[in-house]
Design a protein around this nucleic acid. Structure first.
Length: 123
DNA sequence: AATATGGCACAAA
DNA sequence: CTTTGTGCCATAT
């Protein structure tokens, strides 16, 4: 039996850094690419500790159902900032108590490079 | 070691 | 469409 490697924070951050302005990805997607399907929550744990927000636009990572998820914890103030940043990137949000991004499918970034081999992970 | 709490996902109802 | 329940990975107590 091989012991499964733990989800590597560096990988998550590197992947997140690839998402260009106006494009999005989801926690679950990152988890899958990093080789840990089902590790979506763990991805969140990594992003909340985002050590370098300049390089890693963690606000471009949202939930699979289009809801925003969190930003700097689950605080409402953080969420507001996240929403603002997304809109600054040209993302349209459906307003409401649980705002959701419009046309999420269309905005998903697909061309992720996997670290090391320069491979493209198929989605 | 055991439980609690997260920036989540998904299927059922 | 919404709510609820269960599974998941990682960290903190």
């Amino acid at each position: 039996m091989k012991k499964r490697p733990k989800l590597d924070p560096g990988v998550i951050l590197a992947l997140t850094a690839q998402v260009p302005p106006g494009r999005l990805t989801t926690y679950g997607t990152l988890a899958r690419i990093a080789g840990r399907p089902g590790g979506a929550r763990a991805v969140g744990q990594v992003l909340k500790r985002n050590p370098d927000p300049e390089r890693v636009p963690c606000y471009r990572v949202v939930r699979s159902d289009g809801r925003l998820g969190g930003y700097h914890g689950t605080s409402a103030a953080g969420l507001k900032r996240k929403a603002a940043r997304l809109q600054a990137d040209g993302i349209e949000l459906i307003p409401g108590p649980e705002p959701r991004v419009r046309n999420l499918e269309r905005l998903l970034f697909k061309a992720f490079r996997t670290p090391g081999r320069g491979q493209i992970k198929r989605l």
